[in-house]
Amino acid sequence: MSKTKPIGVNFEELESQCLPHLSVDCVVFGFHDNQLKVLLLKSKFIDEWSLPGGFVGKTETVEEAATRVLKERTGLGEIFLNQFHIFSDPKRSNPGLKPENMKKAGVKLTNYEWLGQRFLSVGFYALVEFSKVDPQPDVFSQTCEWKGIDEVETLMMDHRQILDKALETMRLQLRYQPIGYNLLPEKYTMPELQKLYETILGRELDRRNFQRKILSYKILKRLPERRLGVAHKAPYLYRFDLEKYNQALLDGLSGDW
C-alpha cells in the first residue's frame, strides 16, 4: 500500500484514523527568478495564510505523514525533507476550525471538538525545484501558492515562527552541508548558484571567494556549454556531481560562509 494514501477523506472516520494531539507542518522552499519562495495555503475560513500541514495517521510515522502531505500539496513523491523542530505551545489551536466553519465547507464530523484540540506539531522543511511543483490546496484552503520570503508577513497561528525556524535551520545547514541540488534546475551558472546561497543567507558573498570555496568541495561538474542570451560574457553551465554531493551530505563540509 502506498505510504502517500490520503487520510481523512471520510471525515466521519478522521478521529479513528489519526493520532490525537499530533500533527505535521511543512515549510516548502523553492527558488525562482533569484527569489527564495515558500509554498502557502489561503484559508477558506479566515483571511490568513498558512503552511501546508496535516494529521498523523495511526499507522504512520511522522516522516510518512509529512511525505504524504507534501505529495498531496506538490504532486512530488521524491522530496528532500528535514525534520527540524517540535512546536508545543500549550495554547496551540487553529481558530478557523470551528464547527460552523466546518459545516459551511461540507466537512461533517461526529466530534468537531477533535479538530479544535491542542496539537503538537513536528516541523519539516522541504527543498524542491520550483518548476516541478503543481500546487494543490487542501480541503481547508481555497488556494495554494508560492510567495517570496520577503512578501510573507503574518501567518496563521504560530506558522510565522515555524517558517523563521526553518530558515534559521537551513542557514545553519549551509555551514556543514551542500544545498542546491533540490532547488536548482539540472544545469545552472556559478552566479545563479551564488545567488541561491546569498538569498538563503540574506547577505552578499564575495564572488571569487565563493567560487574558490564551492569548487574546492568537488561537488560540481563544469559543462562545456555556456548560458547564452545574457548581457555579459556567457558563463559556463554547471551541474552537481550527485555521487559526491550525496557523500558530502553524509561527511559534511568544512568552514563557514
Rank of each mutant, 00 (worst) to 15 (best):
T143W: 00
T154C: 00
E48T: 08
Y197V: 05
F84N: 01
Q211Y: 11
E48F: 02
M170S: 01
V38C: 13
D158M: 04
D138A: 10
K132G: 00
K244W: 05
V230E: 07
H159N: 12
S88I: 12
P137V: 11
V62A: 11
G252E: 03
L174T: 15
V128Y: 08
V139Y: 07
W49F: 08
K233N: 07
H159K: 03
G148F: 01
L51N: 07
F87L: 12
N10H: 06
Q173M: 11
S16Y: 02
S131R: 12
D251A: 09
F29K: 01
E192G: 01
T169W: 03
F210P: 01
Y238A: 00
L228H: 02
L223E: 13
P6L: 09
K104V: 13
F29I: 09
V27P: 03
A65L: 08
R68E: 03
L127R: 13
Q117E: 09
M156G: 00
L167V: 07
Y236F: 15
Q211C: 09
L253G: 02
N209V: 01
L205V: 03
V56Y: 05
E153T: 02
L167F: 02
L167G: 01
C144P: 04
G54F: 08
E48R: 10
G8T: 02
L81H: 13
I162Y: 04
E100Q: 15
T169G: 00
D134F: 06
V230I: 11
G180N: 03
I179V: 15
L215N: 14
V69G: 01
R207D: 12
F31K: 02
W257S: 04
H232W: 05
F55M: 09
S216T: 12
L41V: 04
H159G: 03
N10I: 02
F240W: 07
V128F: 07
H85I: 13
E243M: 08
D47R: 15
E186Q: 15
Q83G: 11
R160I: 06
P224V: 00
K37D: 03
L155H: 02
L51R: 08
F84C: 10
E168L: 14
E13M: 11
P6R: 12
D251C: 03
L193C: 00
F119K: 05
R175F: 05
Y238C: 01
M190D: 00
T61N: 12
T189H: 01
C26N: 14
K221A: 06
L127M: 14
A248H: 09
F210M: 10
E168H: 14
R207F: 06
R118L: 01
L36R: 07
Q161L: 11
L201E: 02
K213N: 03
K165W: 01
Y245R: 10
Y197M: 06
P224M: 02
Y197W: 14
E60F: 09
P90N: 07
P52N: 10
F55C: 06
V28T: 10
D206M: 07
M170F: 05
Y197G: 00
N82S: 13
L81G: 05
L237I: 05
S121P: 01
K221C: 07
L70Q: 04
F55V: 12
H21Q: 05
R212I: 01
L183Q: 00
E60T: 09
F130D: 10
K103F: 11
P52G: 06
G30R: 09
K103W: 08
I214W: 08
C26Y: 05
W114P: 00
V122W: 04
A234Y: 03
D158Y: 09
E72N: 08
R118T: 06
N101F: 12
V28M: 02
L163C: 02
E168K: 15
